[in-house]
């Protein structure tokens, strides 16, 4: 049982990590959810060896499985649930803004990279600057239509 659970946790971790490294936002979201599930499975493994059982009373503690890891996992699931919802909202917003499900490039980063490696001349600095300006323009336009969609409490 322990081996199966460990193998399952490892498999889920592996899938999660793989998905996390993709460029599509939806895959990243699923990958993160999988990572959290892997961690949860892993905690359940910890329930096998007994800590101090949480119950107070005369019952022989040997009859109980340690409930604390399950409480941990439940709490962690609550948190994952909230954060995943938020991430979905965020990637939806990203899709609305860019019509694209991919991780966006950082223009500022590219500009700094441009400055430090003057040998590469495929992207003209002026072009990047223009792209940045267009970006600011677009931001200004979008500024007003921000809806009350992405706010939630944990």
């Amino acid at each position: 049982m322990t081996v199966i659970l460990a193998a399952a946790a490892a498999f889920v971790f592996a899938c999660g990590t793989y998905l996390l490294l993709q460029r599509e936002l939806t895959r990243i979201v699923i990958g993160l959810a999988l990572l959290a599930h892997g961690a949860n499975l892993f905690i359940l493994l910890g329930a096998g060896r007994r800590g101090n059982p949480t119950f107070i009373g005369d019952d022989p503690s040997a009859d109980y499985l340690d409930p604390l890891p399950q409480a941990f996992v439940l709490t962690a699931i609550v948190i994952t649930f909230g954060v995943t919802t938020f991430l979905l909202g965020l990637s939806y917003r990203s899709w609305v803004l860019t019509r694209d499900d991919e991780v966006q490039d950082d223009l500022e980063d590219r500009r700094v990279a441009k400055r430090t490696t003057p040998t590469e001349v495929e992207v003209d600095l002026a072009e990047v600057g223009a792209a940045l300006d267009a970006e600011h323009q677009r931001e200004a336009e979008h500024h007003n239509e921000a809806g009350p969609d992405e706010w939630e409490t944990p």
């Binding site: 979905l88 909202g89 609305v96 803004l97 239509e145 969609d149 992405e150 939630e152 409490t153």
Partner: peptide, 30 residues
Amino acid sequence: GMVLMAFEALGEERTPGSSTGSTPGRGEAS
């Protein structure tokens, strides 16, 4: 409340499958 909010934010006005594309209401300007 949170689930309702998620549907409010992410759900579509039109019933699913009733239109060809899944264009969201907002963000048309871009």
